[in-house]
Structures are given as C-alpha cells and as structure tokens.
Amino acid sequence: MNTNYQALPAKVKKLLRPMADGSGISLHTKKGMMIKLGGAFVLFLCAQALVLSVVLEGSEATFYRVLAMISAAVGLYLFCQSHRLVFDRATNRVFVQRSAWWRAPQRVDTQRADTVEVLLTRIDSNRRLQVGLLNQLYVFDQPSDAQALMAYLQQQFRVVALEQVSDWPNKHPWQAEDTPSVTAKSVPANTPVDVAEPQVSELGLVVPIWSRGALLKLALPIPVFCVLTALVEYGVLL
C-alpha cells in the first residue's frame, strides 16, 4: 500500500501536511478551522469598515476608523492562530499543537500514536467514507482516499486501525488490501476503489424523511385550492 507520502492521492496529501522540519505530519482540527473562519469573517467586516471610513465624513468616519482598527486587531489575532493535530515521527506520539506567530508552539494532549484508534465509518452513502480519530472526523468523497489515509497512518505510525463499515455497530480491525506497490502516477486512482467495492457496495443511501412522492402529496392542496378559487372567481360556485 502507499507508504510513501508522494504516492498518496492528492486529497490525502492536502489533508496531511508535512511539518516544516520533516519531523511528522499534521492535520487540521475542527476547532482550528472554526477559529480561522471566525478570523476571516472579522477581517471581512474590517474591510467593509475600512471602505466606509474612507467614504464617510465627520463623526461617522471616526466611528468606522475605530471599528476598523478593533476588527483588524481581533481578526489578525484569530487568523494567525494555528491549532493542528500532529503525528510526530521521532517520538511516535500524537498531540494537538497550538501556535501563533508571536509565541512558541504548545503541545497539549500528548499520547502514544500506537494507542490511538483510527475508525473508518461510512457517512450517508456507500461512496463516502469518513475517518475518525481523537474526536476529529475527516470525510472523503472517494473511498480510495480514506483507505489510503488509513494505510498511511497504520504503516507510518502503527495506529490501531479499525473499521465499522462491513458489520455496522461492531468494530473490526482494518487491514489494507494487498495491492501491488507501484508509484501513484502509473496506477489509476480506481484500483483501490475496485478492491474496496465489495466491502461497501451492500450499504445503501439514507432514505430521507420527505421523499419526492411525499413532497408531491404535501403540495396536493395547492391545485385543489387554486381550482376552487378559479371556480369562485368565474361564478361557477357561490
């Protein structure tokens, strides 16, 4: 399977970012994403306040100048934060690394990588799988991407790889399919998909509460009342 970082699919390479010093890889966390998004939103407000502070005059301009300064400070503070889940190769440990450009990285929740459970589950359809580890979920549209991530983490960091796809409430140890190890360029991306297909094909889509037929039935009174109104309007009824 893909033990080489360069051979991983593009989606997985985007998710697993190598550390600058090559000591491991890092993944984004939900908290980190929320902080970044909040920062981007405040910076967006800052841009609007800047424009208004230029366009307006008098006390209104002063108000927007102050608002622009405050929102720029808050936005930059939030946007420069980094909150990432790091797999460290040298010590084989997993931790959450918090850092910002004005302070050194802090490590919290350190634990051994070979005790971390990585769980492969399906999401709403048979095509989409998600990988969960340490309360983080990573959703993949292609099953092969999820399989590649599992294989990479298992081989590089010896994590406890489990799958919940084939026999749903029970977890089973996950094993990589034995595909011939070749470089990613020569292997089309669908090779692992074909291998994974029998495992996930028996699982169906989510049946929605309101199917199309039910929605049509829900809309049934509209033509009835329309016809009733038209009949009254043209003097057939009443």
């Binding site: 009835v224 109104t229 038209a230 309007e233």
Partner: peptide, 25 residues
C-alpha cells in the same frame, strides 16, 4: 380570499392557493 374571489381587486388564484395551503399545513 376564496370566498370573495369574485369581487374585483382580489389576489391571483395561484397566490390564494399557496396561502390557503400554507395555512392548511
């Protein structure tokens, strides 16, 4: 609206149908 649909200046029939259906559901 349905009852007084014949009187002039009323809503179009499809709007009355939508409003009545909304109220019904």
């Amino acid at each position: 609206n349905i009852y007084f649909a014949a009187s002039p200046g009323g809503l179009p029939f499809w709007a009355i149908g939508l409003i009545t259906t909304l109220g019904w559901h």
